[in-house]
Write a protein that binds this DNA or RNA. Structure first.
Length: 644
RNA sequence: GGGCCCGUAGCCUAGUCAGGAUAAGGCGCCGGCCUUCGGAGCCGGAGAUCCCGGGUUCAAAUCCCGGCGGGCCCGCCA
């Protein structure tokens, strides 16, 4: 006999409503219930007005019918009409016994509701350009990707994670130009490879820009306003250059020399870029890959630290070389949506995007007008959007995916919509409908204007290092004797949690001091709460028998009762969080459980409880808290710590 | 100019999609506790025109319309 229930609260709620429906002869779906706004209003509230509208009965008749029948339901212990509501209370012993039985039978997985239909998901995330270290924005992306993929995995889906390596385009070519001019130097000792590449990229870019601006300055002498503008821009650039030079003067100066020998820098950048895309010059290809791989080496170090793991690393250039892009171009040419836009070959979405049904199915923003997608430049090289169409198809094929989730910043809403429309118009209807742009807003650092191409940068590494050293300090202050490893884990967890626990649609101002505020609303707080629960359980040698739990007595205390109710609801809330891909829902439920647990255990001894029935009850409460926090933290991509 | 996202106490956040009770939590502030199963604690308090204005509804933070403020996007860049 299976004796566990995945969602105890939902289970009882449905049981009660079905019985009530039968007794009252009103459809279950027409009885409208809500979560009461506070514990005084019961465990569940029937909204009489709403139910009246749904069922056709007037409020007073409904009240009479329900009041008469509620007393017949064994799972309801009490009920009360207050204003427009009938508030009802679950039978204490039933609720707690279902909860604890499930906790025991589910053997550590309480809180995780297995999905009905496991699906194959691809989660593509981070995918940062490999020309400078990861920054805090990539950190938000990584945190979201970690949570989304572990939520899906832990509830039974198959997940493949992918990192798309944007190794094409002008930016990389600029870095490669500088890299080659310097003789492709390895990072100096102690310098992280991505930081090294970031230096080369920013220096090259800045030197080129200074040179270009100086030429413009000469031409602008006749226009005083423009002249002053350029002058002030130049000032800023020179300051950036000075700062960059300070890092590695000999390399910086060498770069200036070498660049000055090139008469047409732009042409050189284009030459490199095209040689790579067309794979015409093996030496250039080798340089690109060497630079990109160096940078990725640095990325991996940081991502490993965060716990962001990737099953596949996909080079954009491999997609471009694979023939898939040519296939797509061919398909586009034959398509009825083919046309020209700005004198370039394009897919025109004019009529297609007016169809409201298609807009709905492709989840295109209501009034977003989507311009044509240009499929290649006039020099016949490809554009990133088209390569991305090819890559989307590749992801579906290679992973045999049911859904592909792209975790990509909100500023790419339009190109992402273009990709879905392009897929649709080329006949990849299923892919178009199942490609999900998981969008998130920017991360701002207060008072700091970041710029990768100027090397003005706070890297994710710096943020993590600060978080860890702050964690170390706090541990020391508290007299903890835990290892350096614990400080590392707490610091990293704090950063992940602070980046993933607020709605992705909201802009996030990242304040180091907030993320590192280990008091409340933070990973350290959750970890600490779980460690307490863990240590209580460690001190208990026996496994209490479920039959020896005094449920009635256990539920008499309002603090205990409130925690029990919240814990019985948790699996459903977690399930909702997974269905809606909503890390913030997960985070706030975890905080709620931790808050209730801390408030309760503080004044109600568990181990020292004399009454055996009550003691067993409390032990099971701690067990339940422990499981919920363990599983919830794991879904957040945070490994629990038994000792802090 | 057009579009997308955001606006909830001094500050941060949940609730908004699926409208319902006195708008929920945290930080900070004020006052109190001292009983460490892990004090990173506990109790109490003050603090909100839910950006503004209209509309729909018995009922609006939530839905609709119009504004305002902030961010972002509208490239043969990625």
């Amino acid at each position: 006999m299976t004796s566990y229930i995945y969602e105890p609260f939902e289970f009882l709620k449905e049981k009660i409503l079905r019985e009530l429906s039968v007794y009252s002869n009103i459809d279950r779906d027409k009885i409208y219930v809500e979560d009461p706004s506070k514990p005084d209003f019961g465990d569940l509230a029937i909204n009489l007005h709403r139910t009246s509208r749904l069922s056709g009965y007037d409020v007073d008749s409904l009240n009479d019918i329900f009041i008469k029948n509620l007393s017949r339901i064994v799972f309801v212990s009490d009920f009360k009409r207050i204003g427009g509501y009938i508030d009802l209370w679950f039978s204490d012993s039933h609720l707690a016994s279902i909860l604890f039985t499930s906790v025991r039978e589910l053997e550590g997985s309480y809180g995780l509701v297995p999905v009905d239909k496991p699906m194959r998901y691809v989660v593509e995330y981070v995918s940062a350009n490999p020309i400078h270290p990861l920054h805090i924005g990539s950190g938000r992306n990584a945190a979201l990707g970690i949570v989304i993929s572990s939520m899906l995995k832990m509830t039974g889906h198959h997940v493949e994670t992918r990192f798309y390596i944007n190794d094409m385009g002008r930016q990389i070519a600029i870095a490669v130009l500088g890299f080659r001019l310097l003789g492709e130097p390895s990072p100096p000792p102690g310098v992280k490879p991505d930081e090294w590449i970031g230096f080369i990229y920013a220096s090259t870019h800045t030197i080129i820009d200074i040179r270009r601006l100086k030429e413009e300055l000469d031409k602008a002498k006749i226009d005083p306003t423009r002249y002053r503008e350029i002058l002030s821009e130049l000032d800023e650039l020179v300051a950036d250059a000075a700062r960059l030079r300070e890092k590695f003067p000999q390399y910086f100066d060498l770069l200036i020399d070498k660049l000055s020998e090139i008469s047409d820098v732009e042409a050189e950048i284009s030459r490199l870029s095209q040689a790579y895309e067309r794979k015409t010059d093996p030496d250039v290809v080798r340089s690109f890959r060497r630079l990109v791989d160096l940078c990725l080496q640095g990325f991996r170090e940081t991502l490993d630290r965060l716990g962001a793991r990737f099953d596949k690393w996909d080079y954009e250039s491999d997609i471009a070389w694979s023939g898939l892009v040519d296939e797509i171009i061919e398909l586009a040419r034959r398509s009825s949506y083919y046309g020209t836009h700005k004198n370039a070959p394009a897919i025109i979405f004019k009529d297609l995007q007016k169809n409201p049904e298609i807009r709905e199915r492709l989840r295109l923003p209501k009034s977003l007008e989507i311009p044509p997608l240009i499929i290649m430049r006039s020099d016949e090289t490809t554009l990133y959007a088209l390569r991305d169409v090819a890559y989307s198809i590749y992801k579906f094929r290679d992973s045999k995916a049911d859904y592909v989730i792209n975790i990509i910043a909100a500023e790419q809403t339009l190109p992402q919509a273009q990709i879905r429309l392009a897929l649709y118009s080329l006949g990849f209807v299923r892919e178009a409908e199942r490609l999900i742009h998981y969008s998130y807003e920017m991360v701002l650092l207060p008072g700091y204007k970041m710029s990768g191409r100027r090397g003005r940068f706070i890297s994710l590494d710096q943020v993590l290092n600060e978080a860890v050293s702050r964690a170390r300090e706090i541990l020391k202050e508290r007299g903890s004797r835990s290892s350096e490893d614990v400080a590392e884990k707490i610091g990293v967890a704090a950063v992940i949690f602070s980046l993933a626990s607020i709605s992705p649609s909201k802009q996030l101002v990242f304040r180091l001091e907030d993320a590192l505020d280990f008091e409340k609303n933070s990973a350290p707080y959750l970890l600490y709460s779980r460690a307490r629960a863990h240590s209580i359980l460690e001190k208990i040698s026996e496994e209490p028998a479920l039959e020896e739990i005094d449920y009635e007595n256990g539920m008499k205390d309002p603090l205990r009762r409130q925690l029990i109710i919240e814990m019985a609801k948790t699996p459903s809330i977690f399930r909702k969080a997974v269905e809606e891909l909503s890390p913030e829902t997960l985070a706030s439920q975890l905080l709620k459980i931790a808050d209730l647990f801390n408030t309760w255990y503080q004044k109600d001894p568990v181990i020292h409880e004399k009454d055996p029935g009550l003691r067993n009850f409390k032990i099971y409460m701690v067990k339940t808290v422990h499981q919920i926090l363990t599983n919830g933290l794991k879904m957040m991509g945070i490994q629990p710590l038994d000792k802090i």
